[in-house]
Design a protein around this nucleic acid. Structure first.
Length: 577
DNA sequence: GCCGTTTTCGGCCCGACTGTTTTCAGTCG
């Protein structure tokens, strides 16, 4: 179940769409979009606020506040219901078809009564032929868009996007005349999924780069082709936009194409208030049109009165305000990480033996590395006390080879299974032998909110559980997060000194950024772990770090950036009670 | 509908590309 904030945000986002579709005031629609964003990102539960408290949220005025109050009182908002009665939900879904916006969707509904992807039949029946604004190319685009919508479902996981982006950047960087090349967009902001790639090139002459781009072997289709922008689709179905700008515009362009859209709106507003105009070509004097700065992102932000803002913060979640008052967090980076605290070997479901995993970890320059294979409750892993103790002997022997004094200490741990009642695999006496325990939910996801919450809180209260692994157990695009009262879990973590994992596996990224922000307010500490089941997975940590940054975390918030002595204190302290 | 170093009315981010236009609206990011 969603937080009430998310419910209300979704309601206003829908209202904004309905206003656009019915041809209402575009500024009114934008005001509701803005209110939806502000409410979705607000840290406090909306249901606890009165009209006055609501209006203190920026972007929420009298009218929005009244509708929020109405929603909590009646369970619905009459203004939204009125528009819903006029416009079937299918019309709004039509705007998800690329090339169909609110205006065309509305024309289709008003003129032909079309309110679903039955639209494809209408195109084939040539019913769109007489509509104003609809030509043969529009028909083609619509059919193509419906196909894509049906097949792909849109976004790809971040590792897929990253592989493609790094390949393209590598290829274009070698083209003659290419001065700089980088990916921007949601990938640079390290969003968990990516809808399309934005690649940026600085060159005096765009033609050679554009040509090289459309001729890349994995480009399946050229969607649009112009002197400054070319859009293609790769054979994997991923859309890639390439923009070429003059080298002197690099900073402004990189800033612009990195987004997010909401962040850009805020920076442009800042510019306007100072008599400036910000575009992808630079920061200009609004009156004379003269260029002020454009060469680096730092220049652009500095002229607006801001420090350089890391891309992972650019979501209009308070980074502008924090920057203006000099209060941006000193974000955790991959270089801060001293070790990985959740990894597997082939003793359970990993692919590589202990020695190979340890060697790869040492290669990454870690100061410590925890091996945490599954306990016996994950029955298919055939774990026994004897096997686990035998592994411990091997870990201790290997530790003699890597440390002390030789760089990396090996820690022996386990990934425990949190049973439906909150118990874990072993009794206290056996657990006491581990250096560290991660505990995770692996089954019984549908227990109900109360039982799930109790279950995880109970695991936190176990003095030998140090980290809650992949706390919501979601699999992006496949399994939703469990319906637990996360605020209660966060409070329990803070109270018991249990860290929450930021699982860096690209199909988990769990906790997610918004939950991290909330957990941090509870005073929780975090562990950014790879959950590696193979040597190559260790490098996934970068995505966990990006997610931690999106949650505004500093190195001090992340226990595996700490020196080993401080980490050991964290792992020990709850045993003394 | 929101908001205020352009303050209680009159703005609201900006530009590229496409298709159907004959000067521009719609869509997208």
């Amino acid at each position: 179940m969603a937080r009430s904030n998310d419910e209300v945000a979704a309601l206003f986002a829908e209202y904004a769409d309905l206003i656009s579709i019915t041809g209402g005031d575009a500024f009114k629609a934008r005001a509701y979009e803005k209110a939806a964003r502000a409410i979705g990102g607000h840290h406090a539960e909306l249901s606890g606020l009165d009209a006055k408290g609501l209006q203190e949220i920026p972007g929420v005025g009298r009218s929005v506040a009244e509708k929020v109050v109405e929603y909590f009182r009646d369970g619905s908002v009459s203004a939204v219901e009125e528009l819903r009665a006029k416009i079937p939900a299918g019309v709004r879904r039509l705007t998800a078809v690329p090339g169909l916006g609110p205006k065309k969707a509305h024309v289709l509904y008003e003129e032909l009564g079309i309110a679903s992807v039955e639209l494809a039949d209408a195109v084939h029946a040539e019913r769109l032929r007489d509509l104003k604004g609809f030509g043969p190319r529009t028909e083609e685009r619509i059919l193509h868009g419906i196909d894509l919508l049906r097949s792909a479902g849109g976004r790809v996981l971040i590792d897929v996007a990253m592989d493609t982006a790094e390949t393209i950047v590598g290829a274009l960087s070698g083209v003659t005349g290419c001065r700089r090349c980088a990916y921007a967009g949601s990938l640079r902001r390290v969003r968990e999924t990516v809808g399309d790639l934005d690649v940026l090139v600085a060159a005096e002459d765009s033609a050679p780069v554009m040509r090289a781009f459309t001729e890349l072997p994995y480009v399946a289709e050229v969607i649009a082709h112009g002197p400054t922008k070319t859009s293609v689709r790769t054979s994997e179905g991923l859309a890639v936009d390439l923009r070429v700008v003059r080298p002197q515009s690099w900073g402004a362009a990189l800033q612009y194409f990195t987004g997010s859209r909401a962040h850009n709106i805020r920076t442009r507003e800042l510019a306007v208030r100072q008599g400036l105009k910000l575009s992808e070509y630079g920061l200009f004097d609004a009156e004379s049109g003269e260029l002020v700065v454009s060469e680096t992102e730092e220049d652009v932000y500095a002229r607006l009165g801001l420090p350089w803002i890391p891309p992972t913060l650019r979501e209009d979640r308070g980074e502008i305000e924090a920057g203006l008052r000099g209060g941006l967090p000193d974000l955790v980076t991959e270089d801060d990480i001293r070790g990985d605290l959740h990894t597997h070997t082939n003793l359970t479901d990993g692919l590589a033996p202990l020695e190979e995993m340890a060697a790869a970890a040492a290669e990454r320059g870690y100061a410590y590395y925890a091996v945490t294979d599954h306990g016996p409750d994950m029955a298919m892993q055939r774990m026994t006390d004897e096997r686990m103790l035998a592994q411990r002997e091997r870990v201790r022997a290997l530790d003699g080879r890597y440390g002390p004094g030789r760089g990396m200490r090996l820690l022996h741990g386990a990934e425990l299974n949190i049973a439906p009642d909150g118990e874990v695999d072993w009794p206290a006496a056996f657990l006491a032998g581990f250096d560290l325990c991660v505990a995770s939910v692996h089954s019984h996801f549908d227990q109900g909110r109360e039982a799930l919450t109790r279950r995880i809180v109970r695991a936190c209260e176990n003095p030998y559980v140090h980290v809650i692994g992949h706390p919501t157990t979601r699999i992006i695009g496949r399994r939703p997060a469990i319906d637990a009262d996360l605020d209660a879990v966060f409070a329990a973590c803070a109270r018991t000194g249990t860290a929450l994992e930021i699982n860096a596996h690209p199909d988990r990224l769990d906790l997610r950024d918004e939950d991290i922000l909330r957990a941090k307010r509870h005073g929780v500490k975090f562990a950014v772990d790879s959950d590696a089941h193979a040597v190559v997975h260790l490098a996934n940590l970068r995505y966990g770090i990006g997610t931690a940054q999106r949650g505004w975390l500093t190195a001090d918030d992340v226990i595996n950036t700490w020196p080993l002595t401080r980490l050991r204190r964290f792992l020990r302290k709850r045993h003394g009670r």
